[in-house]
Design a protein around this nucleic acid. Sequence first.
DNA 1: CTGTTAGCGCGTTCAA
DNA 2: TTGAACGCGCTAACAG
Lengths: 336, 336
Amino acid sequence: MTLKRVAEDLNLSITTVSRALNGYPDVSESTREKVREAAQRVGYVPNRLAQALQRGTAEAVGIILPSQFGHFEDPFFLELLVGVGERLHNANLDLVVCAVPEGPAELDAYKRLVEGRRADAVIIARTRRHDERIDYLIGRGIPFVAHGRAETATPIAFIDADARTAFRRSTRRLIELGHRHIALIGAPEELFTAGERRAGYEDALQEAGIAFDPDLYAVTKLNERGGTTAAERLLGAARPPTALLCANDSIALGALRIARRLGIAVPEELSIVGFDDLPMAAQAEPALTTMRQDIRGAGARLADMVCARLGGAAIADLQELLEAPLIERESSGPAP
Amino acid sequence: MTLKRVAEDLNLSITTVSRALNGYPDVSESTREKVREAAQRVGYVPNRLAQALQRGTAEAVGIILPSQFGHFEDPFFLELLVGVGERLHNANLDLVVCAVPEGPAELDAYKRLVEGRRADAVIIARTRRHDERIDYLIGRGIPFVAHGRAETATPIAFIDADARTAFRRSTRRLIELGHRHIALIGAPEELFTAGERRAGYEDALQEAGIAFDPDLYAVTKLNERGGTTAAERLLGAARPPTALLCANDSIALGALRIARRLGIAVPEELSIVGFDDLPMAAQAEPALTTMRQDIRGAGARLADMVCARLGGAAIADLQELLEAPLIERESSGPAP
DNA sequence: CTGTTAGCGCGTTCAA
DNA sequence: TTGAACGCGCTAACAG
């Protein structure tokens, strides 16, 4: 059903029908009513593609889902997606999702999205310190907002958890509990957040006069398997740590499993702390101490920010650093 | 960059450029090369909106993400999304995702998607026995494929796990292990799969000459909390079951937690079996016995099926029932 | 208040 | 082998 057919039915011009439906003031009330009624009756719905072409915008925002081969995806993404999606839906914007394998294909997907005019703006997640996606978007002048920060020449719109503060606080708390031998299982160093987490950890150590020990630092992918391998190595050392600070909950859960397998009691002999507060964190045995991030809320804010950006808001007003409070559960306690 | 500008640069007509790029035979090789080179150089990418409008198709498929208020989402969806998304991306189709709260808004979202010509076809998941979304799509003649079956007057394109067979097999196995008191924690009965799961369970009971006992049957939402409340009730009965068959892994994980809290040893005193084989199933303590579903693979097949459907394939050729093999881990064993 | 005209970027007739 | 002209469905400038 098109505007044209509605117009023919009513013996009116296409223009008048369009104006009546779009609430223009210069159309008589009686006509407007007639048009409204007719449109309703025949079930007229505007063709968004045509609208978009005419307006020169896609009325959509894009997001890339980097899929990992052979691995289950991070539940993090689904929450983010739901948060973003619901809010965009209310703003009458479509969400175009591209799932591509992690790697170079990712950037191509962004290009296709924006150069094919399929999306007016994009959202990017899991930012890297030097992020070619961001460089590309800045270079092309495409509006975007990021979940996470990056090292860029010009400022970007972002929302991020203040991981540095959170990790400093958590490390401090562990020190307070008597731990002196605290290991960090960090994220791959190309991720921006990896540096933040490590910095927070080092801040606290320094404040307490504890030297950073490279033997107590490991780096792995942000999934459970990464946690198991890294924890295995750290716990098998001559002087194993009494506490394990993990870059995210998946890693922490992996560490928990290794501890159990090695017969190390948690939290009596070893404290473990995660980050994210995934649903499974509270369900773990023992329940995982972690730092909380409201992922769905962040998604909603990201959607708001995209809208604002499309509306011309300044980047400086679109930068948010969120608290990630420490949730102490059963997996952490006094040093042995 | 538009076709027009490329044409102007080359002193050719828009038509010729279009044809050269789209591989029409009636254009000289030399012209084609020149055009290709120029397009490449200026970075021409066709405007998909314009293409879509012209062709009368959206070159996109839609999918709805039903979000649950106050609950974390089922990881199931993310896997499905990745499977669908990757395959569609390769087919050069966009995936537009709508996240809406579960309920009546869901149907509206579908309407917006297809009536606004934003999607040529849709994918629906978690089908209900009487599914108004399916009725609507059939009524409007919109191509769609479903993950799961439904009771419909006309056949539909679907992919589904053969839960009936899987549940029969699992129940049989438990009987073989000496269990006679087997409880089922089923899904909400409006879901098609709920009936299948229960039927498989009943099939096996009947084969073994065991009467169905309504006191050993509970129904809950497909999440962990549902599992805890249902298991609590079942295990607190006068003659508690020695085995718990759960509609999915989330429920089973909830049941596992309750068993632990009640001091019931698994599998020595109680066997627990799930469905889906989520990543956390293998990580649970004890590792969960479950029935495996390849969700990402199903997503990929769904994408193929949508393409086939859009290409005019018959519905009868687009119906797949997949095995869900029993994966025996540590949470099941001989009856006490 | 309403209609005519033009054009968004593209594919596809029909002529030349 | 190429180009001019038309239309997909819609909104907006300009007349009347």
